Simulated assay, not measured.
Amino acid sequence: MNHGWPDEYTLRAALTLAVRAPSVHNTQPWRFRISDHDIHLYLDSTRAHQSSGIDQRDAVLSCGAALHHLRIALAAAGWSAVVHRLPHPADPNHLASIELVPHRPTMLEHALNSMILRRQTDRRPFSSAPIPPGYLGLVSERAATLGASIRQAVDTTRERLVEVLRAAPDPGAGYRLDLAEWSGRPVTRDGAPARSVPLYSHPGGVPGMVGAPRQAGPDFAELLVLGTTTDDRLAQLCAGEALSAVLLTATNVGLATCVLTEPLEIPELRQRIRVGVLDERAYPQAVIRIGWASADVAALPVASRRPLADVLDPFEAAAC
């Protein structure tokens, strides 16, 4: 600690955990800048999907998850983050500036921090063991504290949601180009490795699962829809923070998760989910598969991330 500011080791450790946040196809669309008394988060628009539209919603969502990861890592290290979201309206890619004040970590912050390296995207079918209602209530509460809502899709609502997810038309050449560029890579520090690319749509599950049909049993995943009451960039950033809180909370109680955002990039499908699942009370930002991993499955490989020097502005990296 130096004059009320974390030392270099603490900052680097927190940022290393921040970049463990999930992003679509592992694009990691974030950049950080460190000044004398602030940490700044930027959207790296060069790493956003061409097919995600002018608002780059999925990339902003990913940056929100990185922001929450960073806040949790700093809190566990003894620093509370005072976040100013979208601090400069003239620069919409400047997503947050963060001031730090000394802080006594809570047990919850320590617990969530320890989950950052354990959380993984699991696209395999989940087991039939029921999720205790209290667990689903807990993830909903954590999302609500960050300005988002969680709707569990059950019965006819689930049928509607799965139908919409399966009804995705050809999203066009832009999306196919993104998929080819960012997925199916053999060994890489970014993008989705070949082993994580969905190979089929499970007849009892939802699009986006991996494996071969002969190897998979029924999928008993619950489906949650994370939504926000507005749909501007601020809401999308907060939705990413809430998504991170949901995923880390689920990991902490032993649940497996998989985030689906790609179908929501198709405006017609997103509107159908807003109307048919969320009753037009919220804008869908992500669909989350959640459940218990099957006891007999192998451990998932750890997804790679770019080195910290690649996501810190060069001058700031040297000054960190």
Rank of each mutant, 00 (worst) to 15 (best):
H3D: 14
P6T: 06
P6N: 09
D7N: 14
Y9C: 07
T10W: 11
R12V: 14
A13E: 06
L17P: 04
R20T: 12
N26I: 08
T27H: 02
Q28E: 14
P29V: 09
W30C: 07
R31A: 13
D36Y: 10
D38C: 11
I39K: 12
R47Y: 03
I54F: 11
D58Y: 06
L61F: 01
A73S: 09
S80W: 02
V83L: 00
L86A: 15
P87G: 05
P89R: 06
H94C: 11
P105L: 06
M107F: 03
L117A: 09
Q120K: 13
T121N: 01
Y135F: 15
L136K: 09
T156Q: 15
R158M: 15
L161H: 07
L165M: 11
R166G: 13
A167P: 01
A168I: 08
P169G: 09
G174S: 14
Y175V: 05
S183I: 13
G184R: 01
A192F: 09
S196F: 13
Y200D: 13
V210I: 15
V210L: 11
G211R: 04
Q215L: 14
D219I: 09
L223E: 06
V225M: 10
L226S: 10
T229E: 14
T230H: 04
R233K: 10
C238G: 00
A242R: 05
A242P: 06
A242I: 02
S244W: 12
L248F: 04
A250Q: 13
N252Q: 14
V253Q: 15
L255K: 11
E262H: 04
P263K: 01
P263M: 03
R270W: 03
R272F: 01
G276S: 10
V277K: 00
L278C: 04
L278G: 03
Y283P: 00
V287T: 02
I290H: 02
A295F: 11
V297H: 01
V302Y: 02
A303G: 11
R305A: 04
P307W: 07
P314Q: 05
E316N: 15
